[in-house]
Design a protein around this nucleic acid. Sequence first.
DNA 1: CGAATAGTGTCTGTCAGACATTATACA
DNA 2: TGTATAATGTCTGACAGACACTATTCG
Lengths: 269, 269
Amino acid sequence: MTRPALNVSERLTAPPVVAVSTVIFALQPPVGQPTGADASTGTSSLWLPLVRRTREPFRDAWALPGGPLAWDQSLDETARSTLHAATGLAPRYLEQLYTFGGTERSASDLRVVTVAYWALIALANRTPLSPIENVAWFPADSLPLLAFDHADIVTVAQNRLRAKAGYADVAVRFLGEEFTLSELRRVHDAVLGTRSDPANFRRRMLGSGRLEPTGATRREGPHRPARCYRFVEPAGSDLLERPAHELSDEPPGPSPDHSPTTDRKRDPA
Amino acid sequence: MTRPALNVSERLTAPPVVAVSTVIFALQPPVGQPTGADASTGTSSLWLPLVRRTREPFRDAWALPGGPLAWDQSLDETARSTLHAATGLAPRYLEQLYTFGGTERSASDLRVVTVAYWALIALANRTPLSPIENVAWFPADSLPLLAFDHADIVTVAQNRLRAKAGYADVAVRFLGEEFTLSELRRVHDAVLGTRSDPANFRRRMLGSGRLEPTGATRREGPHRPARCYRFVEPAGSDLLERPAHELSDEPPGPSPDHSPTTDRKRDPA
DNA sequence: CGAATAGTGTCTGTCAGACATTATACA
DNA sequence: TGTATAATGTCTGACAGACACTATTCG
């Protein structure tokens, strides 16, 4: 895990260090954060935890949670363990994002290759997160100056999050096992910064075949209670045994102009 | 670039080596390959170059072109230079794919983290590629057994290629600057393994606003000549100055059920 | 002229957004 | 009863696939 001390010219030509950094998204931070954001606009917003650096370079600057790749851990494992160290939580979603390996990345003379991950965590239980040393939560749209090129990494992560929210079940990861369509819609809108029509959102979600009513209902105001749903894998997807990245990372998308096997269905009879 | 020789236990705990491997796709390989695929079905198909290993582990097995990350090269640069070494060509498209860093990846005891790329190259000029030592082209759907986990990497790359072909300008990269709609459609279908309706494909492509007629036409058979087009960035995209991965890697996709700023357009007058 | 592809027009089914309407809870 | 949201239904416009039809070139 340690390597012998090197002088400057040795560091410059030494093999690069591999590190893992993770952009961790959550909706609505735990209570009482010393950040100056709107705490009561009603719409929830994206927040993420940062770690204050205690060493040069960029000492005292904020940085993404992360750390070096240990020789006996996979990249995913490293992301999970550093995530846990920074938040005390396990992610409900974790995906590799991009690997940054430019030669000009670091202010130091030690070459670092950073494998970036992004993660979603649920803050359903309002346990205010055991306050962890040197960790603070910030709204994703007003971050402090970040160390290294971590601001770029956050930008890429936010783009990925928004893109995936459009077609994947990403929004579900912010919620508990059971949720109402309104809750799901609010998450969806918070991530994308939009305001969907409740009726159309309902129709689309139910029509997607990925939601299943649990039978439970939830009362939350002076109005009719809402049915609860859970997320289910669409029928047939269990045939494929997908190891995270093995299958397409991409959406079904605007389907190409063909039926998969045959065109021209009508017989020219 | 070199590191001192280590014994086995030292290798096990040494910092991981960073390597770059690239899946290079082309349509229709150069002439006369000793591979047993259908060479005359009329539909072009995807091929990719592999390199025969000359060292253990996996000596004599086929592997993706690639090599170690040099201390003075970025990941992209390394991908490009190893790609050039294997094909003698420059890619028309190059994108980082995924980083593989499991602890069980290699049969050797030296931990390797591989940053995988995928690339597209055009073989418009039928120059049969200066035959390069230990390099051969294979049809993407009938590859030999590959070293390491390179078969997984190819699978991921093919999924990404197919997914991107659905919405991005990927198909264009296989062609020259100027092309007819039929050529574009054939590429599109070869990548996706489909047969599109020419009329609908034309309408969709022209409607996308990303094609611009060059004025030229091309005669290629006993029929009306075809107009030529070039690919253009859609209007307004030049405002954004996008450095490859900074912006969304994802499709516009099935747009969320909202107009970006306001819902409910009709006035209840 | 016949064959073959380039290119156009049209019909139809699907689906998303807009929005009216009914249902049900609480104060 | 008033209000707020849940849930359903309907209309419309956009768009993709199917496919008939016209245009143009070569042999």
